[in-house]
Amino acid sequence: MKKILSALFFYTLSGIGISLTLKADIGVSSFNSLNVAIASISTIKVGTVTFLLNTVFLLFYILLSKQKQFLTYFLMFVSVLCLGSIINFFSYTVLAPMYLENYFLKLAVFIMGTCIAGFATGMVVSLGVLSFPIESVCQALSEATGYSFATFRYGIDLFSVSVSFILSILYGLPIFVREGTLISLFLLSGVISFTKVNYENRLSNQEN
Rank of each mutant, 00 (worst) to 15 (best):
K106L: 03
G122R: 01
V124S: 04
Y171I: 09
I41R: 06
F152D: 11
A7L: 02
I41Y: 09
T21W: 00
V109T: 06
Y92S: 08
L22R: 04
F152K: 10
N88E: 11
S162P: 00
A108F: 15
S42F: 00
S136W: 13
G122I: 05
S142K: 02
Q139Y: 14
F176T: 00
I41F: 10
G17A: 01
S148G: 08
S29K: 09
I18Y: 06
A120N: 00
E200P: 10
S148K: 14
C115G: 00
F152V: 07
L187K: 04
K2N: 15
R153S: 09
F165E: 01
L141D: 07
I169H: 13
Y171V: 10
Y171A: 12
L188N: 12
V56L: 15
L34T: 06
F159D: 00
A7F: 01
F186I: 13
V124R: 05
S30C: 05
S91E: 13
I41H: 05
G118V: 00
Y61C: 13
A140D: 12
T21Y: 02
N102V: 09
L182C: 04
T195K: 08
N198M: 10
E207T: 15
L63Y: 12
S30A: 14
S65V: 07
T55K: 11
L170T: 04
E200T: 04
F9R: 01
E101W: 13
G172W: 08
F10M: 00
L185D: 09
S126M: 06
K2L: 12
S126D: 11
L105P: 04
L58K: 10
V28F: 00
F132T: 08
F186M: 02
Y92D: 07
S204L: 15
N205I: 15
G122F: 00
L8P: 00
L52H: 05
L75N: 07
I111P: 02
V137N: 09
M76V: 15
K45Y: 00
L20P: 10
M98G: 08
A117Q: 00
N201K: 15
L75G: 04
F186E: 03
Y147P: 03
A120S: 08
G84Y: 06
F51W: 13
M76E: 15
S14I: 02
L158P: 03
V28D: 01
G122E: 02
S136R: 14
G172S: 11
F176S: 02
G155S: 09
A108R: 05
L185H: 08
S189T: 14
L81T: 15
M76W: 08
P97A: 13
L187P: 07
I87R: 06
G155R: 11
F57Q: 11
L185R: 01
E179N: 09
F70A: 11
M76S: 07
F70E: 14
C138G: 02
F89M: 03
N32F: 04
L64W: 06
N35G: 04
I183V: 13
L182S: 03
T114V: 11
F194K: 14
